[in-house]
Simulated assay, not measured.
Amino acid sequence: MTPHQGTLLTAHEVYKFYDRKGQAKRQASAVDGVSLDVRQGESLGLVGESGSGKSTFGRMLLGLLQPTAGTISYAGIDIASQTVAERRQACAKRQMVFQDPISALNPRRTIAENIELPLLNFGWDREQRRQRVDELLRLVGLNPAHRNRYPHQFSGGQCQRVVIARAIALEPEFLFLDEPVSALDVSVQAQILNLLTDLKRNLGLTYLFVSHDLRLVRHMCDRTVVLFHGQLVEIGDSEEIYERPGHPYTRALRGAVLSVKRTAADIEVTEDDRTPNRDGRSLSAGGCRYAPFCPLKMDICTREIPRMTDLGAGHRLACHALEKADLF
């Protein structure tokens, strides 16, 4: 793992609310009081099922969305306090790799034109853009001779390489990877993950890696953050989180991963457990949002939001049943 040199990005008590359509004065909470830091040079995994607030939180860290409350600081500077010009310059340091590479690229532009858009926006001349695009194509494992081809002439994995090339065009420090391999064939996923690992090492990048797969995050990330419907429930070393998950939701996530058993004759796919919000029960209106699904639920769980408890070595979790549950 890459050695860490200090805190690059900090979120403190960040909230994001959206108005519910057709319901006066009611709001839905996408992110609910999340506080964490991203250390320079690390890969931080953000894990949770669909609707847990992972992408919303990541977009706030990039400055693409404004938090309803709370503060987000990058390199010690509060993002909200920056002028428009300062925010524009800061965008060059924080970039994003999208989940679906096909929809992330303009089908009417060539590969080179898609990659050079950030360079064009920051005033690079034509020759500088041409040289940089060729350099980027080689860096992500594509042939510069194919620069004038269109996205539909490339596979999904090749298009994701193009998206990655565009994301690193301005030499950023921080990349938000929003499930960067979930839309790709299994045979291609490992290639893209290896590319991201090499780029991180060679370019000194910091990653926020979003996924719903704890095994993948364990492989790619130094630390893991677990979100459940906007609430941070557990954070710690990725190996520790995977091998010794403390929060009941983290345990459910690990159990929900599909196990694949291969034989010479066929492939059998089984599901060990379901994700916990698929059985029709509603979320807790107050307190811990996982309470309606939790086998360890106590009365206090529906009344009060649990505070983070430090288990040592950077492993923290929020669970009222910590003492009762004999989690370790």
Rank of each mutant, 00 (worst) to 15 (best):
M1Y: 03
T2Q: 14
H4T: 05
Q5S: 15
L9G: 09
L9H: 11
A11H: 14
H12R: 02
D19A: 13
R20T: 13
A24E: 10
R26L: 13
A30D: 00
V31D: 02
D32T: 14
D32E: 10
V34L: 09
V34T: 03
D37G: 11
G48F: 00
G48E: 04
G51W: 00
S52W: 01
S52P: 07
F57T: 00
F57I: 11
R59C: 07
L62E: 05
G63H: 02
G63A: 06
L65Y: 15
L65N: 08
Q66G: 06
P67E: 03
T71D: 13
S73V: 15
A75R: 15
I77L: 02
I77G: 11
I77V: 11
I79R: 08
S81M: 02
Q82G: 15
A90L: 08
A90Q: 02
S103T: 11
P107I: 03
P107V: 12
R109G: 00
I111Q: 10
E113A: 12
I115N: 04
E116I: 01
L117Y: 10
L117H: 10
P118R: 14
L119A: 11
L119F: 12
N121L: 12
G123C: 15
W124L: 04
D125W: 12
D125C: 11
Q128C: 13
R129M: 08
R130I: 09
E135N: 14
E135T: 10
L137A: 09
R138M: 14
L142V: 12
N143P: 02
N143Q: 05
P144C: 02
A145Q: 03
A145E: 07
A145V: 14
R149G: 04
Y150G: 08
H152A: 14
Q153E: 05
F154S: 05
V162S: 06
V163R: 07
I168W: 10
E173M: 07
F174E: 10
L175H: 09
P180R: 07
P180L: 09
S182W: 11
L184C: 06
V186I: 11
S187V: 03
L193T: 13
N194L: 08
L195A: 03
L195P: 02
L195Q: 09
R201I: 14
G204T: 13
L205A: 06
T206G: 12
T206V: 15
Y207A: 07
H212T: 09
L214I: 09
L214F: 11
R215V: 03
V217H: 00
V217S: 02
H219I: 09
D222A: 03
D222W: 06
T224F: 00
V225Q: 00
F228K: 04
V233M: 02
V233W: 00
V233H: 00
E234C: 01
G236A: 05
E243Y: 04
R244K: 07
R244N: 14
H247D: 05
T250R: 00
V257R: 05
S259A: 13
R262Q: 15
A264F: 13
A265K: 12
I267M: 06
E268D: 14
V269A: 08
R274K: 15
P276M: 02
R278E: 08
G280H: 08
R281E: 13
L283S: 07
R289E: 10
Y290G: 01
P292R: 08
F293L: 15
P295M: 07
D299T: 15
I300G: 04
I300P: 03
T309C: 14
D310I: 11
G314A: 06
R316P: 01
R316F: 10
C319E: 04
E323V: 12
D326Y: 13
D326P: 06
D326K: 15
